[in-house]
C-alpha cells in the first residue's frame, strides 16, 4: 500500500490525515474504495449532490462488503450519472420514476429477502423534490412498514434538474424560477415548506440523521451507522447547488458549512424517533454570512435591505438552535 493514490475528486494526491490512525481513515482515502459512482459523470462543477452521493455510496459499499443495490429517483443524480450508453454506476442501479424510489426500493428489499439475499443491502436516493414532494407518500409507506432500506435525500432545496423551481424544501426568501425575486414579497414565501427529517422521526424508524457535504467524515460515519442497522433508515444530506443557489463551484463546502454554522441546518442523529446526538457548531455565524454569499438571496441585500425578512430567517436559525439544543464549541 505504498504506491501513491490519486484522489479522484480533486486530482490531488492527498490520501488522508496522516495524524489519524488508519482505522479512522475516511472511506474515500482508501485506495480500495468502490468508486460506486465513478468519475466521468456529467454533474456541474462543484455539485454538492455528486460529492455527497459519492461519499455516501462508497461508505455504504464498505459497510456492506461491496453488496449494495442502488435505487434512484429521477433527478439530477440520475440524469448526470447515466448519459446513455455511459453509466457512472459500478454497482447494480435501478431508476424507475420520479416519485416512486422508496416503493421500488421496498420491492427490491422484499425480493432480496425472499431470495435469501439479505446480505445485499438496498440504498435508495432522491433529491428533495423526489423525497419531500412527489415521493413522500411512498416514502412514508416505506418508513411505516420499516422496510430494510436506507433512503438518502440529497437536499439542494429546489427542483434543480428542471431548472430551479421551488420545492417543499425551498427555504423562505429563496429565489427560484417559481418564486422569483419580484413584487412586494420576493422569493419563496415564509411559513411554508416541510421538515422531512422530523417527519421521518415521527415514524419512529430505527435511524434518522442529517449531514452536509461540509463534513464528509460525518456523512461517512452516519452512512456506516445506518448500514449497521436494519429496517427503514433515513439520511438527509444538505448538498448546495452552485447553479440554483448562485454560488461559485469552489464554494460548495463553504456554503454547506455556513448553513450549519448559522444554525439554519441542524446536524443530528435520531434513533427510533428520539434525538441521540446533535453536532455542535464550531463557530456560530449570523445568517447573513450564509445568505449573502448566495445569489438566490441577493434581493434581500438590495437598497434598502430586507431587514424584516433577514430578521425572520435569523429567528428561524435561533429557533432551530434552541429546538435541537445546538451548542457552540469553545476552543
Amino acid at each position: 500500500m505504498n504506491e501513491r493514490v490519486r484522489f479522484y475528486q480533486t486530482g490531488s494526491f492527498a490520501v488522508r490525515n496522516r495524524l489519524l490512525p488508519v482505522v479512522d481513515a475516511s472511506v474515500q482515502s482508501d485506495p480500495g474504495r468502490s468508486n460506486a459512482i465513478t468519475s466521468g459523470h456529467r454533474a456541474c462543477q462543484g455539485c454538492g449532490e455528486a460529492l455527497g452521493a459519492r461519499y455516501a455510496l462508497d461508505a455504504a459499499m464498505r459497510a456492506a462488503d461491496g453488496r449494495v443495490v442502488a435505487v434512484n429517483a429521477t433527478g439530477c443524480l440520475e440524469v448526470f450519472s447515466t448519459p446513455y450508453p455511459e453509466t457512472s454506476w459500478q454497482i447494480p442501479w435501478l431508476h424507475s420514476l420520479f416519485g416512486n424510489a422508496p416503493a421500488v426500493a421496498s420491492g427490491v428489499a422484499a425480493a432480496l429477502r425472499v431470495r435469501g439475499r439479505e446480505d445485499i443491502r438496498v440504498v435508495a436516493q432522491a433529491g428533495d423534490g423526489g423525497t419531500v414532494d412527489i415521493g413522500m407518500g411512498p416514502l412514508s409507506g416505506m418508513f411505516e412498514r420499516n422496510d430494510d432500506v436506507l433512503f438518502i435525500c440529497y437536499d439542494n432545496e429546489a427542483y434543480m434538474n428542471t431548472g430551479v423551481q421551488r420545492s417543499g424544501a425551498t427555504p423562505p426568501g429563496a429565489r427560484t424560477m417559481t418564486t422569483q425575486a419580484v413584487g412586494p414579497h420576493p422569493g419563496a414565501p415564509f411559513g411554508q415548506g416541510k421538515d422531512l427529517p422530523r417527519i421521518a422521526m415521527a415514524h419512529e424508524i430505527p435511524y434518522v440523521a442529517t449531514a452536509t457535504v461540509a463534513d464528509l467524515r460525518d456523512l461517512e460515519a452516519k452512512v456506516t451507522t445506518a448500514m449497521a442497522l436494519r429496517g427503514a433508515r433515513y439520511l438527509h444530506v444538505l448538498v448546495p447547488c452552485p447553479l440554483g443557489w448562485g454560488t461559485p463551484g469552489h464554494d460548495t463546502i463553504r456554503v454547506a458549512r455556513l448553513a450549519t454554522e448559522s444554525g439554519l441546518f441542524p446536524v443530528f442523529e435520531a434513533h427510533h424517533g428520539e434525538i441521540t446526538t446533535v453536532t455542535p457548531i464550531r463557530r456560530r455565524v449570523p445568517v447573513t454570512d450564509y445568505l449573502r454569499v448566495q445569489k438566490r438571496y441577493a434581493h434581500l441585500f438590495g437598497d434598502p435591505p430586507a431587514t424584516a425578512e433577514i430578521a425572520r430567517i435569523q429567528e428561524q436559525a435561533d429557533r432551530t438552535i434552541r429546538r435541537y439544543g445546538i451548542t457552540e464549541v469553545t476552543v
Binding site: V69, V71, L94, S96, L97, G99, N100, P102, A103, V104, A105, S106, G107, V108, A109, A110, A111, L112, R113, V114, R115, G137, P138, S140, G141, E144, R145
Partner: peptide, 24 residues
Amino acid sequence: CEYLNVDSEFAAMSAAIGASAAGA
C-alpha cells in the same frame, strides 16, 4: 413469498418493479 401491504397502487406497481428487477 413476501406480501407487501403498500400505501397506494402507484406504490404497488413501483414495488413490483423493484421486486421484479431484483429477480423475484
